[in-house]
Design a binder for these strands. Sequence first.
DNA 1: TACTCGTGGCG
DNA 2: TCGCCAAGAGT
Length: 367
Amino acid sequence: MNEQLQYNLKEMEITTFQKDLVQWFIREQRDLPWRKDSDPYKVWVSEIMLQQTRVDTVIPYYERFLKKFPTLETFAEADDESVLKIWEGLGYYSRVRNLHSAVKEVVTQYDGKVPNTLKEISMLKGVGPYTAGAILSIAYGVPAPAVDGNVMRVLSRILLIYEDIAKPSTRKIFEDAVREIIDCDHPSYFNQALMELGALICTPTSPSCLLCPVREHCLAFSAGVEKDLPVKTRKKSTKHVDLLAAVLKTDNGKFIIRKRPSKGLLANLWEFPTVEDGNFIQMRTSLLKYLDQEINVKAQLETGAFVKVDHVFSHLTWTINVFAGSISGEINLERNYLLVTKKELEEYAFPVSHQTIWKAYKEKFQL
DNA sequence: TACTCGTGGCG
DNA sequence: TCGCCAAGAGT
């Protein structure tokens, strides 16, 4: 921590700041489903879902998740397919794979009780510095920092911190600052209040300083530089990838789907057979290779794509040209491929891009 | 450290 | 329209 920050912390009226912030939170906090109780399991689930994901998006997923898996034990016993299916469309799918693995570990290693020490909880898969602090403070009342993007934005303004919040090492500076100012009598309220303030008042662009309960404590507001903070360097632009996909229907009305690899992008999700950056011939050749070549397979693809799907990820963009085809004869599929009916298909978890493909197919061919 | 890993909303 | 973003973690 540099000298200037130490000085700013020293000059701060910490007790008054804590009171103003916490009282505001108690008064103005949103009514959110994960705030109904402080069950460590529920807090944990909500914090994982909220990683890099908007509150409005999370709410229906959280409700469905807790209805299907109301306790840590019920989730621990769930099969991998149903776990992925309930996360379908939420993104960052390794989150739920890690959560499932960690919950099973809690059952076997901690007698079903979520650990309440920083050391133990941090060892769980998918629980990093932020989530560890969030669970400890919200579920157990431990005065640990929970520094997310909101907290860095809010505190960069209040304490006039110009460090680049895009750099991973910067988070430690804010954790040190939180340790200095956290309300040890109300760590749950305090941490949530910082985040709530960031979400409702101290927003990235055009913060509502006139409504802010702690503007008297805010150095950026005093200096009129709140819009210059936080400092955040932008990352490089995304790459573009062209794909061909095929919705293939057999003569007995089933569809070919395949499971993606267990690591990397969209791991373990299902999709329609896809080839990268190829042409029509490559697609046909690829499909014949994926199917059993010794079987009499007739892939009668249409002459053109019936839909083009553009999908934007955080770090890359897909353009998928999608063909429809029919296949007759006995079909012998490789590992990771599956023949399913329309109804069965919709029981598997697909990424949004391939949900879009399926929806377009059903409309086009009147399913 | 820098990059990977999703999605939908917004100015 | 499009880059930026939103309660990050793993590698």
